[in-house]
């Protein structure tokens, strides 16, 4: 099946070579390899992490889609599955992990909290969605998403990988070496996003009250 997908349809390969030769493009080959071995970072934040574990167990078996090799170190991971509430205190650690991941790297926001803050959005220590800091590829709704929903989300990511072109992906663009580097936020009186320093200073100056 994979062989058919890989081969370009317009080239006629002699019948006796069909199982041996495939004519394809670099993009297709590259994407095929990448989508079939997405290694997630073994990284759980909250309740969603438990469903992530459940998705790997016998009943759901994420391994069917080439995604079971959880890597505890970011240096070997392709995908960060943000599985749970992102708190301000935890955020610098998450950003550091993301920055340590080699490209290509993908981010999947699993569940309501990682997507938007979810039920805990109003909390003073909660970041209202990881997408305020990291570029999210797939959002999976649910609180927590069932293992089926998680697998559906990961298949969506595979579909996204299928459509990538090696020329256009942001990590291979010329002159944009640190396009994927997210500056570390600072824990001050509240969470300081250093990219927004000027804005914060301005808003604090005109703030009402003492």
């Amino acid at each position: 099946m994979e062989n058919e997908k890989l081969s370009l349809p317009n080239y006629n390969i002699p019948e006796d070579l069909e199982n041996v030769v495939a004519i394809t493009t670099i993009d297709r080959l590259y994407n095929w390899g990448r989508r079939s071995s997405v290694w997630p970072l073994m990284f759980g934040l909250a309740c969603c992490a438990i469903e992530m574990i459940a998705a790997q167990t016998a009943r759901y078996d994420m391994a069917r889609f080439g995604m079971e090799v959880m890597r505890p170190t970011p240096r070997q991971a392709d995908m960060m599955l943000v599985s749970g509430t992102v708190t301000k205190k935890m955020l610098p650690a998450i950003i550091r992990l993301y920055n340590q991941m080699p490209e290509p790297k993908y981010v999947v926001a699993m569940g309501a909290c990682a997507s938007s803050g979810g039920p805990f959005k109003e909390g003073y220590n909660v970041v209202a969605g990881i997408d305020k800091f990291l570029p999210v590829d797939v959002y999976i709704p649910g609180c927590p998403p069932t293992p089926q929903a998680l697998i559906a989300g990961l298949i969506k990511l595979q579909e996204k990988i299928d459509k990538q072109s090696i020329k256009k992906v942001r990590w291979y663009e010329k002159g944009r070496q640190d396009a994927n580097y997210v500056p570390m936020p600072i824990l001050g009186p509240d969470l300081i996003d250093v990219r927004r320093n000027a804005e914060i200073k301005q808003a604090a100056a005109v703030k009402e009250g003492a």
Binding site: G123, V126, I186, E199, I200
Partner: peptide
């Protein structure tokens, strides 16, 4: 959106006249 009601347009609250560039991290 809750963000639109907050002066910092996010889940943030800083003291008056806070300057993030001069802040010394504890």
């Amino acid at each position: 959106f809750a963000e639109n009601k907050n002066p910092f347009r996010d889940n943030l609250n800083f003291p008056k006249d806070f300057d993030p560039e001069k802040y010394e991290v504890v």
